[in-house]
Design a protein around this nucleic acid. Structure first.
Lengths: 218, 218
DNA sequence: ACAAATATTTAGTTTTGTCTAAATTTAATT
DNA sequence: AATTAAATTTAGACAAAACTAAATATTTGT
């Protein structure tokens, strides 16, 4: 398994290639910042290895073993992210780039021991679920803050966008996993929200709210 | 800096390419299990980048910046080895293969934080010195066990051969860094040694003794 | 010093992963 | 349903890093 193959498998998974509707060559190319023709080439190779289903012009879908592989890579990526934050004082906007490299290290013992060292965490620093060693993972019950009604109260449990710019914005406004958010007002004009956090009120754009996951308080 | 380039630089350093006598194409090829013609190709590329001095048929020598690069790779390799042993319960025969991969991860913060987490260790699990961040490193005062005289007493401070087979042999015989070794007898016939460790006597071949470093007791 | 042996380089090929440009298929629109 | 637009694939090329085989330099032995 080369690094490039692993990156394709991971990307296809993230684009929904584990479901039933195939992913287009174009979508993969765009996500990976490469050209559709390169994707076609790789699709053939991955199909030969039994990792994807591929029929010309019909898009790409992961096979069973493709999904297993994707989950193992995602598991490594997210465990490394936890490690970087918990043990090495990385901030959540710094981890992705390094985890992109670390996820390709080949050693089963290594990742199992990292898992143990961290106490078998279930979620990464962005709130995403970490697949177990045998490929199971459970998405947490969550909803976008932008889908909450006025006066709704929830706990921040994850982010959708994980770009450094967004994460730094959150830091600056003291929005972190675990904090309680109450929706005070939803502006009809631009869908921006006024929320209450840490006993202060703050106005955030719809786009911000559409990238924050919360768990509704029962 | 590609992975392959880094591996060449590291190998040249280990073959003594930081001194004044150039390393031959053949020696590098043998060490890296590749062909001399491949080494020639890479020598040109590294020379273009200013990392080695290279004149046709005259062998290869690291430049100042080549040495700096080599030391930074070796620093990473050895710090990762310490991490694997200290934090993840790897044995000293398991670390090399994984550290070979980890040493190529590109993140200054990562390796600095690993260094801090480990408490700025000076030696790796095989007793080799870890270069500091600015490229300084001091070889410990040590000698081969095979060079010790009869009745000499020393503390094991390192190994020369770091192959899994050798290290497993040492484990099996409870030879580890820090233990005290006394030379009881040197056989004239085959230069094998009878040594005293842990209050037991043990006979080891000359080849074993020639791969164990000790620090003589004053 | 000169021939034989050894070491090194050159030239041309291969593989992997990418690209461009052209050709082809599928989807969309009128 | 035909034509245009968009997506996808093919064909051919390239760069990196390796290889083989042949050519050339250097070293060694007498």
């Amino acid at each position: 398994m080369t690094r490039s193959e692993e990156n394709y498998i991971k990307t296809i998974f993230h684009l929904g290639g584990n479901s039933t509707s195939p992913i287009s060559t174009n979508a993969i190319a765009e996500q990976m910042e490469t050209k559709p023709s390169s994707v076609t080439d790789m699709a053939k190779k991955l199909a030969d290895k039994g990792l994807v289903h591929y029929k010309k012009y019909q898009g790409i879908l992961l096979t069973e073993s493709g999904i297993r592989l994707a989950l193992s890579i995602i598991r490594k990526h997210r465990l490394w992210e936890v490690f970087l934050v918990e043990k090495l004082d990385f901030t959540w906007d710094e981890v992705h780039e390094v985890a992109e490299q670390l996820e390709h290290i080949k050693s089963e013992k290594l990742i199992d021991q990292i898992d143990a060292l961290l106490g078998y965490p279930k979620y990464d620093p962005h709130g995403d679920s970490i697949p177990s060693k045998d490929g199971e993972f459970f998405e947490r019950d969550k909803q976008l803050l932008s889908d909450m009604p006025k006066a709704g109260v929830g706990v921040c449990v994850g982010v959708k966008d994980t770009s450094p710019t967004f994460l730094k914005f959150l830091d600056k406004n003291q929005i972190a996993l675990g904090i309680t958010i109450e929706v005070l007002e939803i502006e009809e004009f631009d869908q921006s929200l006024t929320i209450q956090i840490h006993d202060k009120s703050l106005n955030i754009s719809h786009q911000i709210a559409a990238n924050l996951y919360v768990k509704k308080q029962s």
